[in-house]
Simulated scan of single mutants.
Amino acid sequence: MELVGGPLDGQLLGITAYAPEERADGALLMSNHGVYGPGGRSDYEPRPGDPDRWNWAGDTP
């Protein structure tokens, strides 16, 4: 699926190994380009009505 917005905008994430319950929650992904730099994480959540895209919800240390 495609990541939309934030530091990972436009990148693709393979989610075939995720269970449906895990997909519903989104993911905190390691990102060197987020607000917190190397070691920080970017929060992406499923876009309502579009399962092929996840929206950026912010960064966390």
Rank of each mutant, 00 (worst) to 15 (best):
M1Q: 13
E2P: 14
E2A: 15
L3D: 13
L3P: 11
V4H: 06
V4E: 06
V4L: 08
G6S: 12
P7Y: 06
P7D: 12
L8Y: 06
L8W: 05
L8D: 11
D9G: 10
D9I: 15
G10S: 15
Q11A: 11
Q11N: 12
Q11E: 10
L12C: 04
L12E: 11
L12W: 14
L13M: 04
G14N: 08
G14D: 12
G14Q: 13
G14I: 11
I15K: 06
T16P: 08
T16F: 07
A17E: 07
A17M: 05
A17W: 05
Y18P: 06
Y18V: 09
Y18N: 13
A19M: 09
P20K: 04
E22L: 07
E22T: 05
R23E: 03
A24M: 14
D25L: 13
D25K: 14
G26F: 00
A27Q: 09
A27R: 09
L28Q: 09
L28S: 12
M30R: 13
S31F: 01
S31W: 00
S31E: 02
S31Q: 04
S31K: 04
N32H: 03
H33K: 14
H33N: 13
V35N: 05
V35E: 14
V35D: 06
Y36V: 07
Y36W: 04
G37F: 01
P38V: 10
G39D: 04
G40E: 03
G40S: 14
R41D: 02
D43I: 10
D43Y: 09
D43T: 10
E45P: 01
E45S: 04
P48H: 00
P48Q: 02
P48Y: 01
G49P: 00
G49S: 01
P51C: 01
P51V: 02
D52F: 00
D52H: 03
D52K: 03
N55Y: 00
N55D: 09
A57H: 03
G58R: 08
D59C: 05
D59V: 11
T60Y: 14
P61W: 06
P61Y: 05
